[in-house]
Structures are given as C-alpha cells and as structure tokens.
Amino acid sequence: MNSKSWLVTLLLCFFLGVLGVHRFYVGKVGTGILQLVTFGGLGVWVLIDFIMILVGKFNDKQGQALAR
C-alpha cells in the first residue's frame, strides 16, 4: 500500500504545480527540479500532471498508484 495520498498530490499540483512540489512529494526529485526551473514546463507539464492525477494514472517514484 502506498503512503502517498492522491488528494494531497492533487492539491499540491493545483496550488504549487509550477514549482513541482507534487513531484517532490511523491519522490520524483529529478523531475521536480526540472519543473521548478521551467515553471512547470510553462504550465503545460503541470496541466498534464493534473489530468494524470485526476484520472489515477500518476504514480510515485516506485511506480505504485497513489492511495485514495
């Protein structure tokens, strides 16, 4: 069972997505840094991540689904 919450990840992406905070939360530090320096891929990357989280296709660093 994954300890990373789907709701927390969704909220972090919505409010702090351009800083990559949701990626740091799930353990994806490398891509979190990339999002931080590119402002979330100028918003496009954040939008894609947000949709992926909403539909349940966003996983943590180990590839496990987020806990609902």
Results as ranks from 00 to 15, higher is better:
M1F: 13
M1Y: 07
M1E: 14
S3K: 15
K4S: 14
K4T: 14
S5N: 10
S5K: 04
W6I: 06
W6S: 09
L7G: 00
T9D: 01
L10M: 09
L10A: 12
L10K: 06
L11S: 06
L11N: 06
L12C: 06
L12P: 01
C13L: 06
C13A: 09
C13Q: 01
F14V: 02
F15I: 10
F15K: 08
L16A: 15
G17K: 05
G17S: 05
G17Y: 02
G17P: 06
G17A: 05
G17H: 08
V18H: 01
V18K: 01
L19S: 03
G20R: 04
G20Q: 02
V21C: 08
V21R: 11
V21P: 10
V21Q: 12
V21D: 10
H22M: 07
H22V: 09
R23T: 08
R23A: 06
F24S: 12
Y25L: 07
Y25M: 01
Y25D: 13
V26A: 08
V26G: 05
G27C: 08
K28N: 14
K28W: 13
K28I: 05
V29W: 15
V29I: 15
G30N: 10
G30L: 13
G30F: 14
T31I: 14
T31P: 00
T31N: 13
L34H: 06
L34Y: 06
L34P: 06
Q35G: 09
Q35I: 01
L36N: 07
L36F: 15
L36R: 14
L36M: 14
V37H: 06
V37S: 04
V37L: 15
T38I: 03
T38S: 07
T38L: 00
T38F: 09
F39C: 12
F39Y: 08
G40P: 05
G41K: 00
L42I: 13
L42E: 01
G43E: 04
G43W: 00
V44S: 02
V44P: 05
V44C: 03
V44W: 12
W45C: 00
W45R: 04
L47A: 14
L47D: 02
L47T: 07
I48W: 03
I48P: 00
D49H: 02
D49Q: 01
F50S: 01
F50M: 07
F50G: 09
F50H: 00
F50L: 13
I51Y: 11
I51M: 04
I51A: 10
M52V: 05
M52P: 01
M52K: 15
M52R: 12
I53D: 02
I53S: 00
I53W: 02
L54M: 11
L54C: 10
L54F: 05
L54P: 00
L54V: 04
L54I: 11
V55T: 12
G56R: 01
G56Y: 03
G56M: 07
K57Q: 13
K57N: 08
N59G: 03
N59Y: 13
N59K: 15
N59C: 11
N59L: 12
D60Q: 14
K61I: 15
K61Q: 15
K61W: 10
K61V: 15
Q62N: 15
Q62W: 07
Q62A: 15
Q62M: 11
G63N: 06
G63R: 08
G63F: 12
Q64S: 13
Q64E: 15
Q64G: 12
A65P: 06
A65D: 11
L66A: 07
L66C: 07
A67Q: 14
A67M: 09
A67T: 02
R68L: 04
R68N: 09
R68S: 07
R68I: 01
